[in-house]
Structure formats: structure tokens, C-alpha cells
Amino acid sequence: MRLTALPAFADNYIWALVAEDGQAVVVDPGQAAPVVAAATQQGWVPRAILLTHHHDDHIGGVAELQARYPGLEVHAPADPRIPLATHRVVEGEPVQALGQRFHVVSVPGHTRSHVAFHTAEHLFSGDALFSLGCGRMFEGTPSQLLASLHKLASLPPHLLLCCGHEYTVSNAVFARHVDPTNAALLQRHEEALAMRRDDRPTLPVSLASELECNPFLRTGTHSIQQAVSAYLGRPVTDEVDVVAGLRGWKDGFRT
């Protein structure tokens, strides 16, 4: 299946996986217009939607798409704030769409019901994991966030990360502040800057790259723990303390 990133709003990505016969799975359509425009121009038809969480910039286009494409399946977590789902997903029960198997991973932290989906090639992480960062904790706890990040980090490293926002360059600035001697991170930052100068997406990116570069996936490493301890002005006690300190640091970070 062909992967397509559809820009939406200021910095969102709606993802589409398009089969050879022109049928498509769409992930997190916060707006209908980019999906309709791409489908019309490129000759494909949405047949299923995957939703990672309830925020409007990820689900706002669903009703219009359902009206335009009758019979559209909508797979979403069990959350009453997502009212238009035709199927509720749970971890451990894969979703079948257009002959493709999507594994469901429960990843609370950004929201309490957040899920990610992955195939044998792609990881659709919504706002749970960004390139070089992760989503803010709006509803979850540091221990939930850490457990979710560990789940994602344990997936096959060849998976291509397809997240919900184009935050890579700004995340890189913070990541390099935390981890200034990381050569892989420096290279990723430079590559991302070049991509954005050419108006290209910095995504997808391999999970292997994120494991080398993303400080939120490296909370067990000595260099990240030292940096967070210096920021907090005290020794960190465990990885939950590290991720809480790192998330708080990022929330207040200004370049």
C-alpha cells in the first residue's frame, strides 16, 4: 500500500494508505477537505478510518467524510468523546481493513484513551509519540506516559513512524539542549532543517532513528538522566521521575 501524508491545519498530518485498487485507509482526519482533495486528484476512495484519540484536530473531518463516502468504517478507542465510531478497538485485537492488519497499542498519557496502530511497516502514533518528542500529558500520569513510551520503543525498529504533527525541527532544538553531544541527533536535526527548507515532510522516520535521537525514548540512559537531574537541581529517582522532569522541562522550554 502507498503511504501519503496530507497536510492539514497549521502542522497536522492526515495519513492515507492507498491500495493498488484505489481503496484507502485514512488515519486521524481532522479535516475532510485535504482527504477529499487528494482522493479526487489521485483517484482513490476512503474505505476505512483509524482514529488514535478524541482531539478535534484528529477527528473533526469524520462526519463529513462519512456523509460523502457511505459505508465508511471508523475504528476508534472506546471513548464517548468519539461519537461516530463504527468499531471500538482494544489492545490485542487487530483491526482488519482492506486486507491489512493493524495492531492496536494502548498508549495513555497524552489522553487517557489514546491508541496507536501499526502494520508490518508503519506506526501511526497520533500524538503519543512525535519525531524527537512526545505529546503533552493532558490526561495521563508520568507513569502511564513512561509505560506507553516503553511499549512504542519495544516495537520493531524498522517501523516507519507516522505521527500527527510536523514538530520535528522545534523538537530537535529541545532535544539537542538536553542531549548536546548526540551525533545522530545532530544529523537528524540538519536533515530535518533541509527537508523543511524544501517544503518536504520530515516524516515518516524509522523508529530506529528515534531510539537513537529522541530523549523521551532514552530516559534510561545516563546522559538523559544527568541532564534532567541538572535541570531539576537534584538526583532523579527512577525513569518515571526522568520522564516527568523531561516533560515538564519541555513544556516550559523556550528557544
Rank of each mutant, 00 (worst) to 15 (best):
V243D: 03
Y231T: 06
V240C: 13
V228K: 04
E191K: 15
D238H: 05
A227K: 00
L207H: 04
M195P: 01
A194W: 01
R188G: 06
D199P: 00
A244N: 07
R218F: 03
I224Y: 01
P180C: 13
V205T: 13
D198M: 08
D198V: 01
D199L: 07
T221V: 04
Q226K: 13
E239I: 06
P204W: 00
R188N: 14
S229M: 01
L207Y: 04
V228Q: 02
E210I: 04
L232R: 12
T181N: 11
Q187T: 14
S209P: 03
P215V: 05
V240N: 06
R188D: 15
D199F: 03
P235M: 12
L203I: 05
V205H: 08
A192R: 03
E239D: 12
G233Y: 02
Q226I: 03
V243P: 02
A227S: 08
N182W: 01
D199T: 04
R200H: 10
V240F: 03
G233Q: 11
A230K: 12
E191Y: 11
D179C: 04
A184V: 09
V242P: 08
V240I: 14
R188H: 14
D238W: 09
D179W: 09
A230T: 13
Q187P: 03
Q187H: 15
A192H: 04
T219P: 05
Q226Y: 00
L232G: 11
Q225F: 01
R200D: 05
L193R: 12
P204E: 04
E191G: 09
T219D: 07
E212P: 06
V242M: 11
E239C: 10
R234K: 15
L211S: 10
G233E: 04
I224W: 00
C213I: 02
L186W: 01
D179S: 06
A192V: 05
H189D: 15
L211M: 11
A208K: 12
T221D: 14
R218L: 10
P204C: 09
V243Y: 03
P180D: 06
S223V: 14
A230I: 09
